[in-house]
Design a protein around this nucleic acid. Structure first.
Ligand code: ZN
Ligand code: ZN
Ligand code: ZN
Ligand code: ZN
Lengths: 138, 138
DNA sequence: CTTGACCCTATAGCGACTATAGGGTGTATA
DNA sequence: TATACACCCTATAGTCGCTATAGGGTCAAG
């Protein structure tokens, strides 16, 4: 392998991505197919590393693979308006906001349920009671 | 079907659970197999309805199916200490708490990223820049 | 007697990986 | 030179919690 080419392991180490995940991104059209060595090893260019870093960063920020694909396409069209980028980012932020709210009200209920358990045996357990619809007799 | 028996559709309507989901719970050992009618229809007892309500309530609270299975087993052993119930509930609450924190710091970053976009074209877009590792040239 | 609502099984799909089986390649060392 | 070992390859199946589809059977009403 020439010094300008990177193996899949190099990309893996450089980005903290599992090798299988990199192949998965390729199979799913997020990462373009690289050239191959004589031994059929993938031989990446630095641009591949940049692209993979982009993907991972976007994934870290919680964007879906579909959103990442869209962001990549947009980022390739450098002269295009970035309005579409903004739309994707805001949609994602709104979703994160919704999830936070959902989890917060969930936690409130869980706190109440857990707090209410001052018992010893399951028959009297307020946690179990809070799950059961009525007196169970199965 | 006798009036004391419930069809899968009855359970579905009573709990807001899709029919396929009920069969899925049965296949995965959460809901015991009911009797069958002459026409091979599932014929549920009221106890099944209670159990399904329990499952759904626990799922609404975000417990995993494994956790629900454990809670069901514990709730069947009425004389047992409820310490194990407490452990499951607290573990779940802690996880929810962690997720909230993760999403909150995620949202902070997303807010910053979105806020920083005052541009017009992708080439200058701060959102794209925040994803890219360096200047891209692929 | 046919329509239509309901039910059955079995299987595949979702998202985003992860893991396994069963091999091939390339290099360092005994 | 043998061989050990790290690394790479493909293809396929598994994870979770459903959901959807295909291709049928059952049952009551009109
Ligand atoms: Zn090249
Ligand atoms: Zn208790
Ligand atoms: Zn019965
Ligand atoms: Zn912008």
């Amino acid at each position: 392998m020439s010094s300008t080419h990177l193996s899949i392991g190099d990309l893996s180490r450089a980005t903290g991505t599992k090798v299988e995940t990199i192949r998965f991104y390729e199979k799913n059209g997020l990462l373009p197919q690289p050239g191959r060595t004589q031994g059929n090893y993938r031989a990446y260019e630095p641009a591949h590393l940049n692209r993979l870093s982009f993907i991972r960063r976007a994934r870290d920020l919680g964007f879906s693979l579909d959103q990442v694909r869209a962001l990549l396409t947009l980022s390739d069209d450098r002269s295009h308006s970035c309005a579409a980028v903004d739309v994707i980012a805001r949609a994602h932020r709104d979703e994160v906001e919704r999830k936070i709210k959902d989890l917060q009200s969930l936690k409130t209920v869980l706190d109440q349920v857990i707090e209410s358990c001052h018992c010893n045996i399951v028959a009297d357990c307020a946690i179990i009671e809070s799950l059961a619809p009525a007196s169970q007799g199965s």
